[in-house]
Amino acid sequence: MNSTMEAKDIIKEIVGKHEVKHVVFVGCGASKADLYPAKYFLDQNAKQLRISHYTANEFNFATPTSVDENTVVISASLGGATPETVEANAVAKDKGATVISLTRMIDAPLTKDADYVIYHRFAENYAAKLEKTGYCLLLAVELLNQVEGYEHYEKMLNGFSKIYDLAQESAESARKAAKQFADRFKNEKVIYIMSSGATHEVAYSSSVCLMMEMQWINSGTFHAGEFFHGPFEIVDKDVPFILLMNDGKTRAIDSRALAFLDRFDAKTEVVDALDYGLSAHIEKEVLDYFNPFVITAVFRVYAEELSYAREHPLTKRRYMWKLSY
């Protein structure tokens, strides 16, 4: 395992040994969601590669028969000790797959069955919290470019050179709006969160992790495109929604949902990538894939302010890491 190898060199070595046909992303909770932009990117652009995305225990108990020596499994765990994801690496290796793992902890259990490990930061600042997502997306870009070719490869690399600074600046500039949000939403018993495109699972992780896990607030999450196929029936005056709004191809989906929320005076908070200048920094051909970076960074500030207003630290748990489960 060589943690210093860049994504380009890792993928070059893998495609030199194997005919890569299948890419599988595996994780749990926020780490699973952090892999989604890479999955979305490949779904949008790959013509031959097969793409899958699993919560780890689903992968372990119902392993796809297509996982073999032509498969690359990319797994992630922040602390590198999530038991289900550690097991997924072993399952993948047993099937002959090549495993790349992302974690912040050197020599963590996740590294045991990984062929390659990329270490990322997290706690240093808001940009650091995006490195897991970023490195995974970069691996996906390299896989596509080296296996099939990708016409916007250089534009993606240019985007990577800008997005971390932009996300950090965006988060720092969001504090006032986040405080106002926290004051408005601090007493809510349930909060619904939705988005679309590459940001779909940012909404998911914001709901299940930031709201349910870290704030003990009941929360529901769904794709903004699914809003009109069931969830919109609960819309009424002052029902609380958070809309994570993308710039790019799926903006029309988010805009349609927002128009309906406004029509019935729902209690709506919008975090919009456009407000933070994403399209001024990232070229339109690759814009969609960088929405999650800005929105994740900004909404982390929102979650922090909510925790302060509710006097409920983001680190507080009842069950997680405290019981056997």
Rank of each mutant, 00 (worst) to 15 (best):
E233C: 12
E233S: 15
I234S: 09
I234Q: 11
V235C: 15
V235R: 10
V235F: 12
V235E: 08
V235A: 14
D236A: 15
K237R: 08
K237M: 00
D238P: 00
V239Q: 05
P240E: 03
P240Y: 04
F241Y: 10
F241N: 02
I242F: 01
L243S: 03
L243H: 03
L244W: 13
L244Q: 11
L244V: 14
L244S: 08
N246K: 03
N246G: 05
N246T: 15
D247V: 14
D247A: 15
K249C: 03
K249W: 04
K249L: 13
R251C: 03
R251Q: 10
R251V: 03
A252L: 06
A252D: 10
A252W: 03
A252E: 11
A252I: 10
A252C: 03
A252M: 04
I253G: 07
I253E: 13
D254T: 14
D254N: 15
R256N: 08
L258R: 08
L258N: 05
L258V: 03
A259I: 09
F260G: 04
F260Y: 15
F260E: 13
F260T: 14
L261C: 12
R263L: 08
R263W: 02
F264T: 01
F264N: 02
F264L: 06
D265Y: 09
D265A: 05
D265T: 01
D265E: 09
A266E: 06
A266F: 08
T268G: 06
T268P: 07
T268L: 11
T268K: 11
T268M: 10
E269H: 11
E269C: 13
E269I: 03
E269D: 07
V270K: 01
V270C: 01
V270R: 00
V270I: 07
V270N: 01
V271C: 09
V271K: 04
D272Q: 05
D272T: 02
D272I: 02
D272W: 05
D272R: 04
D272F: 06
A273C: 11
A273L: 05
A273T: 14
L274I: 00
L274Q: 02
D275V: 00
D275G: 06
